[in-house]
């Protein structure tokens, strides 16, 4: 059962085709990774799904019961490394409350939004960060706060753009495990853009492989094949020691294609 269905979705900007028409579906309840080299159109696809940029083709959304939704549902969004002003005097509590209460923050934070903020932060194991200024959060902490912010609107679907870039390896696995538990608990569909193949093979159930257009899509084990990887990243792409991957991918032997890298 699909949560999102893409039909000939394409994006052009200033006469340049950023995303060639693609048709695929995002399985409900899956963790789908959108992978591909830089400039492949990963973030563009994410923004098209979010409705932030206009696109050709159609994007359909389905309810938990599998009914076609007439409108785009609320979608949780965790942007890539939120580029914000680190000098801004704003605590995590302020940020969470701003998204929840209409009352301006200078009139105080209502008891209700305070306890809601605490609840959401608890879900992402960030309860202790309530009074921390945003500028003083580490990369991993900031990602967890952003996740809590996305969960606040009780979405069915959460989109994450490079959620673990700029986070160290330990923090990366911690964040992915957390994502997994939040997903199970709330029966979410997660879609994340990533260029980190180890994150994908360890944490995603499905993958959509892009390089301008669609290269492959489906369950991770059937998609991450040598052919697909070399189509996206060029030959010599390796994913070693991947648990649960039926075909381990090792160095490809494309003797005649040493200089051939698909350019973005």
């Amino acid at each position: 059962m699909f949560a999102i269905e893409l039909n000939q979705v394409a994006v052009r900007q200033g006469g340049i085709e950023i995303l060639a028409p693609i048709s695929t579906g995002i399985e409900r309840g899956s963790v789908t990774a959108i992978i591909g080299p830089n400039g492949a159109g990963k973030t563009t696809l994410l923004k098209a799904i979010l409705g932030l940029i206009s696109c050709a083709g159609s994007i359909r959304f389905y309810s938990r019961e599998g009914k076609l939704l007439r409108r785009r549902p609320v979608i949780g969004y965790v942007p890539q490394r939120l580029d914000f002003d680190r000098g801004l005097p704003m605590t995590v509590r302020d940020l969470m409350s701003m998204g929840m209460q209409r009352l301006p923050v200078w009139c105080g934070i209502s008891k209700q939004s305070d306890s809601l903020a605490r609840r959401e932060l608890k879900r992402v194991e960030a309860e202790g960060l309530m009074d921390r200024p945003l500028g003083k959060l580490s990369g991993g902490e900031f990602q967890r706060v952003q996740l809590a912010l996305a969960l606040q609107i009780e979405p069915d679907i959460v989109l994450l753009d490079e959620p673990v870039s700029g986070v160290d390896v330990a923090g990366e696995h911690l964040f992915c495990d957390l994502l997994q538990s939040v997903k199970d608990e709330s029966r979410l569909t997660l879609v994340m853009v990533s260029h980190d193949l180890s994150v994908v093979s360890n944490h995603a159930t499905h993958a959509v492989c892009l390089n301008h257009g669609l290269i492959a899509a489906g369950p991770v084990s059937s998609v991450l094949t040598p052919d697909v990887l070399s189509c996206m990243f060029g030959p010599h792409t390796m994913v070693a020691e991947v648990p649960g991957l039926s075909a381990h991918v090792h160095e490809c032997s494309h003797e005649h294609h040493h200089h051939h890298h698909p350019h973005p």
Partner: peptide
């Protein structure tokens, strides 16, 4: 009425739009 929303937009306009 607009203060919180303006702060949100100041933080990240795209995130604000999705909300």
């Amino acid at each position: 009425f607009a203060y919180n929303r303006l702060m949100f937009i100041g933080l990240n306009p795209e995130l604000a739009e999705t909300r």
